[in-house]
Nucleic acid binder design. Structure first.
Lengths: 213, 213
DNA sequence: ATAATAATTAACCAATTGGTTAACAAATGT
DNA sequence: ACATTTGTTAACCAATTGGTTAATTATTAT
């Protein structure tokens, strides 16, 4: 009884926690409108708090944006270090990466465009330092794994960077180009989602088909 | 003599043509900053004209943006109708499409991100009307060509939409993700450009390798 | 030459923007 | 109980923004 009551209160407190409400609203607005297009008043309205609270908790627009951008970019960043060290064969690793990466984007469809766009328009520091900290992990291991399998004669020779580009291009680009794809094909949202679901296996097989000897 | 003088004057007149100067400046600013981030004063300064001239020639910000967006989106839009009707075999058509499309993006590297971003943030009409006019051409013909070659047993079965997505994903995405790729790989601009140059043939062969029987 | 039209300028304007402030309320420690 | 810190509010502010206007200068047609 007491424990139940506690859980409810903690949850209620967390839900009405001003800082958390700001973050939720800021996430929505920044991802929807971008840094330049986002309005502080809009964030305050969605969070249902006074605009001064934004500055009370996060100093200014740029600071608030940086918090949102870091958590968002962190999600987009491929972290498959553990998977690369597993004992799956190379093709199954690709299958796993493609499937879980596309699934992640299905859950966060606006993430790739948001991050890419702000990185291009905002070549400032802060962003860079954050990425460089995570850098060495995945790319290096993937590279090694490719070269290992190339030497073993299991896959055709290819520059690992190109292969990585190809993989993540086919995973992420359709979500970025969604409005254009819808116009060109006349697809509706649900059909589009179905296609993306298909791609979780299709893209991996497309790649494997191409590099297999 | 006279003709020379005429040519020079016409050229000089065209160069100092206010309307053209505005368009050149607007192109730069909109592509660099986006609709929300672009400033009318910034455009006027770069064009070295009075800000009122922007409204004199193009009514308002949205109108000026629409002009720029239309010409820009028109470039990005794949127009390979004639090529699809040529007597090249299917694989050579893919080679030709990939090569010339990547070359076009090399010449206009910020084009894909600009168009995709504005289409996502600005799902208004006007944009649509423009695209729908061009729609039927390429996608339909490409679709037919794929199905024809599938029936002839020359390529493995694949949903044409997925194949089209794969092709243009691998062509365009690396340019969109350039800042991220540079961070992850430590590449410099020139090395990156070399990689993109390689992709003009590499991507086509990657695709053909995957769908060939 | 001169009237009419088109192009250009500087000053101005109202609305919006990010950000601040001072007064007030709620919680917290003692 | 009371003082101190923390959280919240409404009103305000200076700067920036897209857009306008009225006066001025070029250009063009007659």
């Amino acid at each position: 009884m007491l424990t139940n009551w506690l859980i409810i209160m903690v949850k209620a407190r967390k839900d009405s926690n001003t800082e958390e409400k700001i973050l939720i609203a800021a996430r929505q607005v920044f991802i929807e409108k971008g840094l330049a297009g986002a309005r502080m008043q809009d964030i305050a309205d969605r969070a249902e708090i006074n605009k001064a609270m934004l500055h009370y908790y996060f100093k200014n627009k740029d600071m608030l944006f940086e918090v949102i951008f870091r958590e968002t970019a962190g999600k987009l960043f491929p972290h498959f270090e553990k998977l690369m060290e597993s004992d799956l064969n190379f093709f199954d690793k690709i299958r796993s990466i493609v499937s879980s990466y596309i699934e992640m984007i299905i859950q966060n469809p606006y993430l790739p465009l948001f991050v890419m766009n702000e990185m291009n328009k905002n070549p400032e520091i802060g962003i860079k330092t954050f990425f460089e900290a995570q850098k060495p992990g995945f790319v290096k291991k993937f590279r090694e794994s490719i070269e290992e399998n190339m030497k073993a004669g299991l896959i055709q020779p290819i520059n690992p960077i190109h292969l990585i580009m190809n993989i993540f291009s086919m995973c992420a680009f359709p979500f970025i180009a969604k409005p254009m794809i819808k116009l060109l094909t006349g697809l509706e949202d649900e059909q589009f989602k179905n296609l993306m679901e298909q791609r979780k296996v299709l893209v991996a097989e497309f790649i494997i088909n191409s590099i297999r000897k």
